[in-house]
């Protein structure tokens, strides 16, 4: 297409290379600062990381001027897949399955609650909408590290606000003995099926992340709801459509294009959510709430296995690549079904 247009308009004598590349030269001139910075601190370390993943980079290779590490081939990758790592309770498959389940369960609940609250605040005649909207946005503006550390203390078995709240409400109502649930360290999993193990700590993390995550989904959903033409509802009502049918036929087609990209974005963010796992449960009990990113951090920070950590990062990158390809396909498939 462009070739045809160019052939039609280009004058017979070819311009010199210098003149033809004028646009590109200006572009690269402007790009020099950003490309230079990224080449040194972003792209070079990533390439270096791939090289590191094939070496036994360790503490002895750290100092300036110390010998370079030895080449070990795919040994680091094999060690990870064979769970031959000194971290206690290391199980690559279990961590991966838990991480996927963690992200998926969070995003589904975020979207469902976010849409439900958006619908609630969209009810005509509801008083105090503005105040509620202002309150509901508050969890979003608190830095995640503060959220994680505060909720860590809220789930404390002896002094935590969650147990105090349970004692004051459910406990007082049914005259139960004092409740002191060890939310973050209770050792017996609530659910276990093959590599998927969900300890009580998972539900504590889930609660925290729902608190943190639904409000923005609600904001995005509210924006989409406001774009639904009101007469569509009236038309549906005249056709005798009930509440659920109206939601499915009128509301959902307007919600989906706004919510789906945001849900995909939320999935990747939650998949890599470092703070909650690291600060609340510390990956426990028995490493069952460890995520890929926290494991990667421990490999460097606690074990100083730089080579293994690099290989682990390459795995993370490949997994995220597959996730991106799948979600892109998913987004395209639903977009096509809308048309």
């Amino acid at each position: 297409m462009t070739a045809i247009a160019a052939a039609a308009t280009a004058p017979p004598p070819r311009k010199s290379l210098w003149r033809r590349t004028r646009n590109s030269r200006t572009a690269y001139l402007f790009l020099i600062p950003a490309l230079l910075v990224m080449a040194i601190i972003t792209f070079y370390p990533l390439v270096y990381q791939v090289w590191m993943s094939f070496t036994n980079y360790g503490l002895t290779n750290l100092k300036a001027g110390s010998p370079l590490p030895g080449y070990v081939g795919f040994n680091n990758y094999q060690r990870i897949l064979a769970n031959n790592i000194v971290i206690p309770n290391f199980d690559f498959l279990r961590i991966l399955v838990f991480n996927l389940f963690w992200a998926l369960s969070n995003v589904i609940l975020h979207v469902v609650i976010g849409v439900a609250v958006a619908l609630l605040l969209n009810v005509e005649g509801l008083k105090g909408k503005r105040i509620y909207r202002a309150i509901y946005i508050l969890p979003v503006v608190i830095p995640p590290i503060i959220v994680a550390t505060v909720w860590r203390n809220m789930f404390d078995p002896r002094y935590g606000a969650v147990n105090y709240l349970l004692n004051g409400t459910v406990g007082a109502l049914f005259k139960l003995p004092p409740i002191s649930i060890d939310w973050l360290n209770q050792p017996n999993p609530i659910f276990a099926a093959g590599p998927l193990i969900l300890p009580l700590a998972y539900f504590a993390l889930l609660t925290t992340n729902i608190w943190l995550g639904w409000p923005l989904n609600s904001v995005v959903a509210t924006g989409a709801l406001q774009s639904v033409p009101k007469d569509l509802y009236e038309a549906a009502e005249m056709d005798g459509a009930g509440w659920w049918a109206q939601f499915k036929v009128v509301t959902l087609p307007y919600l989906r294009p706004a919510m789906l990209p945001y849900a995909i974005y939320g999935f990747v963010i939650t998949f890599n959510l470092f703070y909650l796992s690291y600060f609340m449960s510390g990956g426990g009990p028995f490493g069952q709430t460890e995520l890929l990113v926290t494991t990667n951090y421990r490999l460097v920070q606690e074990q100083h296995l730089f080579g293994v950590a690099a290989a682990f990062s390459v795995f993370i990158f490949l997994i995220l690549l597959v996730i991106t390809i799948i979600t892109n396909k998913l987004a395209r498939a639903t977009a096509a079904s809308d048309a």
């Binding site: 990533l46 270096y48 100092k63 300036a64 460097v300 730089f306 950590a309 993370i316």
Partner: peptide, 23 residues
């Protein structure tokens, strides 16, 4: 290339950044 970098969480670049900056 920029999109690919955006996909990788920052924590996962700790190993090369630590070793390179340390030198």
């Amino acid at each position: 290339a920029i999109l690919a970098v955006l996909m990788l969480p920052a924590v996962a670049t700790l190993a090369p950044l630590f070793t390179l900056l340390n030198r």
